[in-house]
């Protein structure tokens, strides 16, 4: 079956509608959907300085590519890239090179913040010190901490990530299983519950696109999509949820869209429920937190 619109050779069958699209029709479909997401959820405004969190992987580089293209059209938007080097030997080194190369070629300011420099230990060293802790949980805490701290330092008004529909459906289900509505309230295409100048709002322009669609876009744009998975990925709760959802998606197509779309219906209720949540300054580092000590400092204490 050729492309539905121009009868050329198809590159993808869309997950829900089963429509076949060729290279240019798919690219148009993808970019239109991202633009619609940005508009629908007011993700980017005029004169925003968007710092894009990059890992060098296909999702974040595609996101950076798209937003940079948008910035070139709308001159008032400024784009920078920020990479967090967790210190995972044999993994991050390669993607870092890809990210830096891309930024250089496209004249995008590129910044790096590393676990080693900021917290004194690499993730590899942390996992040895805390063998009973799931690496992804620790990594996530420090990554979010540094992304917020550094994007604020860079005077960003938004922090963009390459999260897609697959990532979001996993997070929604994980929070449901753990009965963590406070965390659910922070999800969505524009994260956070309460605006606070210490928190840079995070945006997810690929929110309504699947991982397969994002990979297809990345491939068509010439990004390296060769398989390169984090060595710690196999021991996380998310990994199990991801497999569960992928199996359900195969058996019941539209599962992930269903989870995300129904979540978007109830998200305003979650945000309303937590809108009066207090935001304090961490006693140790002065970074914003809902507790007295932020999770990053709590973990640092455990590491000492």
């Amino acid at each position: 079956m050729p492309c539905k619109f121009c009868k050329l050779k198809p590159v993808i069958t869309l997950p829900n509608s089963k429509i076949n699209l060729c290279k240019s029709c798919f690219t148009r479909y993808f970019e239109k959907k991202v633009l619609r997401t940005i508009k629908q959820f007011s993700l980017i405004g005029k004169k925003d300085h968007v710092v894009v969190a990059v890992s060098g992987g296909k999702d974040s580089l595609s996101c950076l590519y798209f937003l940079n293209k948008l910035a070139n059209k709308r001159m008032e938007i400024k784009i920078s890239a920020l990479l967090i080097d967790e210190g995972i030997s044999g993994y991050r080194n390669k993607t870092m090179i890809d990210a830096e190369k891309f930024c250089k070629e496209n004249n995008i300011p590129f910044h790096i913040a590393s676990f080693k420099k900021e917290i004194g230990l690499t993730l590899d060293e942390i996992t040895k010190k805390l063998p009973n802790t799931i690496p992804c949980s620790v990594c996530g805490v420090f990554r979010r901490y540094l992304l917020n701290k550094y994007s604020r330092k860079l005077k960003a008004t938004k922090l963009a990530t390459g999260h897609n529909l697959d990532d979001e459906s996993q997070s929604i289900l994980m929070n449901q299983i753990r009965n963590n509505t406070a965390l659910s309230a922070r999800l969505g295409p524009l994260t956070g519950v309460k605006r606070d100048p210490r928190f840079i709002p995070r945006i997810k322009p690929f929110y309504l696109l699947t991982e397969k669609e994002t990979a297809t876009y990345a491939f068509l744009k010439g990004f390296d999509i060769e398989f390169n998975e984090c060595p710690y990925n196999t021991v996380s709760f998310r990994f199990e949820i991801r497999d569960l959802l992928n199996n359900l998606e195969l058996k019941y197509p539209g599962t992930k869209h269903g989870i995300v779309n129904s979540f978007l219906e109830i998200l305003p209720l979650f945000k309303e429920r937590y809108k009066n949540m207090e935001i304090n300054s961490c006693k140790e580092c002065k970074e914003p937190t809902s507790s007295k000590i932020c999770t990053a400092c709590f973990l640092l204490k455990k590491l000492k």
Binding site: G162, I225, E229, C230, S236
Partner: peptide, 8 residues
């Protein structure tokens, strides 16, 4: 055949 899952 290339998996599309993110790096993690």
């Amino acid at each position: 055949i290339i998996p599309v899952i993110s790096g993690g």
